[in-house]
């Protein structure tokens, strides 16, 4: 589904990603972990081209994405993204947030987009909030709307960058629940999270980033119970 070869990314003199190789299979759920500043967000942002990599190749859906030649907007349609701070459009209702891109990017008929949005809202448990504005929602509700908004583009992969980090503890569960449901349905997902219980339950693979390298990757049971790298051990001791 996604193939990353020798990906590197620098900000000025700071090299954040160093020759990352990573393949993500269809329907696979991959969790990225690593301490703050290790480049987790940067890696995700390179995958939907919010950042332009300095070197390496990204192949999505067997197409080599060359940022000069490929229509990146078309690629982004295939890759949904959920942000830590939701980034809902505050001047639009929940429903309008969800139907915006399907109508203006995919040129769907409005009635069709609305029907689909209502189904998605049902799925994330917010059917009754369609005509609310984002600021009238709790954090957990906002993040569920953001997930529905990304899903409305019918992406082939979903990227999550710490989707529950900005939430009050009691609201984390409802968002993770929606993500588990997505995983069960077979959505391909790449998730940055510090929720290790969730990772254990849902992830097919956990990847540990440090200093711009993938230093360790394994099935969550293996990686959490028997980490090979001492940086991984130290990191897990801090978060578990």
């Amino acid at each position: 589904m996604i193939e990353i070869r020798q990906l590197s990314k620098s900000f000025g003199s700071l090299q954040v990603l160093k020759n990352i190789d990573l393949t993500i299979k269809q329907q696979e759920v991959v969790v990225l972990i690593g301490s703050s500043g290790s480049g987790k967000s940067t890696l995700l942002r390179c995958l939907n081209f919010l950042e332009t990599a300095n070197g390496g190749e990204i192949i999505i859906d067997s197409e080599l994405i060359n940022s000069d030649k490929t229509n990146l907007n078309k690629v982004r349609e295939k890759v949904g993204m959920v942000f830590q701070h939701f980034n809902l459009f505050p001047h639009k209702t929940v429903l309008e947030n969800i139907i915006e891109a399907p109508i203006y990017v995919k040129r769907e008929k409005k009635e069709h987009a609305i029907l689909k949005a209502q189904k998605l809202l049902q799925k994330v448990g917010l059917r009754d909030k369609a005509n609310f504005y984002p600021e009238q929602l709790s954090g957990g509700q906002k993040q569920r709307v953001a997930i529905a908004r990304a899903l409305a583009m019918e992406p082939q992969v979903m990227l999550f960058d710490e989707p529950t980090s900005a939430l009050d503890p009691e609201l984390v569960g409802e968002v993770l629940q929606v993500m588990k449901e997505l995983a069960r349905e077979g959505m391909t997902m790449v998730i940055v999270t510090h929720e290790m219980g969730f990772a254990k339950e849902v992830a097919d693979r956990v990847i540990m980033l440090a200093d711009g390298y993938i230093i360790e990757e394994n099935h969550p049971n293996e990686l959490f119970s028997n980490p090979q790298h001492e940086r991984t051990q130290r990191f897990l001791n801090q978060v578990l």
Binding site: N73, R76, E77, M81, N87
Partner: peptide
């Protein structure tokens, strides 16, 4: 306007002008 707004819009496949 928060940078995240443009990023969210771009991540949904919207061209910059849109």
């Amino acid at each position: 306007i928060d940078r995240g707004q443009l990023e969210a819009a771009r991540s949904l496949g919207m061209p910059k002008s849109l």
